[in-house]
Amino acid sequence: MAGHNDSEKKSTESTNDLPTFNAENLQSNLKVIYYSRTFMSIIAGVVAGILGFTSLKGFIFYVLVMALTSVGLVAKTGFSIHTFFDSWNQIAFDGFFGGLMSFVLFWTYPK
């Protein structure tokens, strides 16, 4: 009986624990990621423009730089993503398409 009660308590505790995290801090972390990505996409656009990449090459370059940025961000968390973020794709893909816009702008602007 007691054991049964204990297990029940534990299960309810775990269900309570799973979704609880500091939303304010998560928001600020996402903001940090968003800033990093926007700045890196602008810089990537400038570099791609100077190197004279055209069409598909430029987009491949963008994907490469974003992957590098993701690795850098993961290194910034100290390789323990779950203490700072909800899930994996938040750090890997957040701000990818928003950055693409500024990338294309700075890539094609001088031409």
Partner: peptide, 21 residues
């Protein structure tokens, strides 16, 4: 320039804060 800007992009926006209560 790319390396320097990458470093700036990773350090300037601020530190990550833990979300564990």
């Amino acid at each position: 320039g790319l390396v320097l800007c990458m470093w700036a992009a990773l350090t300037v926006p601020g530190k990550f804060l833990s979300i564990h209560p």
